[in-house]
Simulated assay, not measured.
Amino acid sequence: MILHIKNMVCDRCKMVVKAELEKLGLNPVSVELGKVVLAENIQADDQLKIAESLSHFGFELLADKKTQLAEQIKTCIINLIHYSKEPLKVNMSTYLSEHIQLEYTQISTIFSEVENQTIEKYFIAQKIEKAKEMLTYGELTLGEIAYQLNYSSVAHLSAQFKKVTTLTPTVYKTLTSDLRKTLDEI
């Protein structure tokens, strides 16, 4: 049986979900961002127990197909931006269509309906969060960050950064307080 779970955004999330399912006596075959495969089928009352247990950690079981698809899209984008080792040199519509096995227009329509924002805006928000992370660590120049995130120039990154955060990357870097968001808050 497959469970779709909202707000799984990192490896620690996978560990927490796996541990909670094992506490409930279930045997997860695999635990991925947003999806768990169980060895056995479960009853409705077991699903309620799982939902209650996971809700304490900010996770949510998804039953609706459209919501599951939106979460799958978000997971693909998060994986691409935050966990890929290569610079972002992909066409988003092609990437999502290949990973989700649906036409991009269908993917885009459902995502916008469920999330009340476009895939493009979500993608940009994730890229800006990654840029904030890279700026915070201070290991890369702004030019290197722009290259890693597939911006055509530092000016393009800076303009988009300011549009999303109201700050320039340079001003952001000089701030002492961390203004980053967790991935599930985006």
Rank of each mutant, 00 (worst) to 15 (best):
Q43H: 10
H99Y: 12
K14P: 02
E40R: 10
T118A: 07
E139R: 15
A131P: 11
A63P: 03
K132I: 08
L88D: 04
D11R: 15
I145P: 03
Q117P: 05
I100K: 03
N79M: 05
L3R: 03
K49M: 14
I42A: 14
A70M: 01
V114N: 04
K6M: 06
T105W: 05
T105V: 09
P87E: 04
E22S: 08
E144C: 05
I124S: 09
S112H: 04
P28D: 10
C76K: 00
Q47G: 13
K130L: 01
L3I: 06
T174L: 14
Q160T: 14
D11Q: 15
L80W: 00
L62G: 05
V16C: 11
H4F: 02
T174H: 14
H4A: 02
Q72S: 07
L149V: 08
I119P: 08
K162I: 03
S93C: 06
S97Q: 09
T109Y: 07
V114W: 05
R12W: 07
I100S: 03
T109M: 09
T168E: 08
L96T: 04
K130V: 00
D178R: 13
E120K: 14
V114P: 01
T136F: 10
K49N: 15
E32C: 12
I77P: 00
L149M: 09
K49Y: 13
I107Y: 02
I128W: 01
N116Q: 14
L96K: 03
K66D: 15
I2E: 08
P169S: 11
Y147G: 01
S152N: 12
A70V: 00
A39F: 11
K163H: 13
T170G: 05
D45Q: 10
Q47K: 15
T182N: 14
S108K: 15
K163E: 14
M8R: 09
A44R: 15
E129K: 03
T94G: 05
H156C: 11
I42H: 10
V31P: 06
A51Q: 13
Q68L: 08
Y137K: 14
Y83K: 06
I5Y: 00
K18L: 04
Y122S: 01
I128A: 01
E139Q: 14
E60N: 13
L21P: 02
F57P: 12
P87F: 06
N91P: 04
M92P: 02
Q126I: 02
L149H: 06
I107L: 06
A131D: 01
T166C: 12
S30F: 05
T105A: 10
I110R: 11
L179P: 05
N116L: 09
E32W: 13
E60F: 12
N116C: 08
L26W: 03
L149N: 05
S108P: 14
I50E: 03
I78L: 01
S158P: 10
Y122Q: 01
N116F: 10
L3V: 08
K6E: 11
C76W: 00
L175Q: 13
V171F: 10
E133H: 13
E71P: 00
L3P: 12
Q148R: 07
I81G: 00
A159P: 08
S93E: 12
T141K: 04
E60T: 15
S177W: 12
Q160G: 12
F123P: 02
F111N: 02
